[in-house]
Write a protein that binds this DNA or RNA. Structure first.
Lengths: 133, 133
DNA sequence: CGTATCCTAAGACAACTGTCGTCACGTCGT
DNA sequence: ACGACGTGACGACAGTTGTCTTAGGATACG
């Protein structure tokens, strides 16, 4: 039956982001958070999106309170991983390095980030194989 | 009428990539290129995708030969820009630097790429504003 | 208890995607 | 001239996404 891979479309991602921020929330709370960010959705829309997310298994709900309380079941990090991986495969020949280069060429880093990058690079080249006996 | 933004779904991207590689191609040529990469689509499917791409204005066609010859009307670079921008906005708070850090942390660069990155960083910090009088 | 509220469930619906089937048409070899 | 064949236009169809309406159940409060 080969279940198709779980995808998270943009509108669902918007509600998921609220859950990441708030840790947990009811439909209404999500709705209000989204209002603050300019997303004017109806209550039903938000409910549908949460429902779809739950069906996909990326959020959980529990009904100890009056209304269902939803929580994220995956981390932002996981979603980032997947999206980046897919982007790199689709447009950068599976070479993350190409994307890095592209990013650096088009967007200057601030000083703090630049030094972080340097640190990482140094680590990387200093000890090529820390696990080797 | 606010026409919705041009999006290029994955399957269309696959055919567009062939056009980027070959510079120009007929439906049948695209079909064959895709076969080589493991994409077993019917002729009609490829034709539909090219048609949709043309409607969106991202490829052009000309019929000097027997069959239409399609050419890309946007560059891979443009598509990369858009996709990356959107990814950064959606998952990295609009901070390209965060994505760079993320990439470097999870994927080691090879030596060549690493030195390229260093070079770019050096340029960046050495002369913050080369255009300034 | 009666009713104003809030909540969920169900489903509707158009647009977009992924994938084709076909039919009519021009072309090419015989 | 004729038939085999490649081509493109048209359209179909299910699944996904974006968004909402509404009906019906639980709650809370006078």
């Amino acid at each position: 039956m080969a279940k198709r891979p779980v995808t998270i479309p943009d509108s669902e991602l918007d509600v998921l982001k609220v859950l990441w921020d708030r840790e947990k929330a009811t439909v209404r709370e999500v709705l209000e958070s989204l209002r603050l960010v300019g997303r004017e959705w109806s209550y039903a829309t938000v409910a549908t999106l949460l429902d779809r997310l739950e069906t996909k298994g990326v959020v959980t709900s529990d009904r100890s309170e009056l209304a269902f309380v939803y929580r994220p079941a995956i981390t932002a990090h996981e979603v980032q991983q997947k999206r980046v991986k897919s982007l790199v495969e689709k447009l950068y020949q599976g070479e993350p390095g190409l994307l890095v280069l592209h990013l650096l060429k088009s967007h200057p880093l601030d000083a703090k980030q630049a030094s972080e990058v340097r640190a990482i690079l140094d680590d990387m080249t200093k000890m090529p194989d820390p696990n080797n006996a």
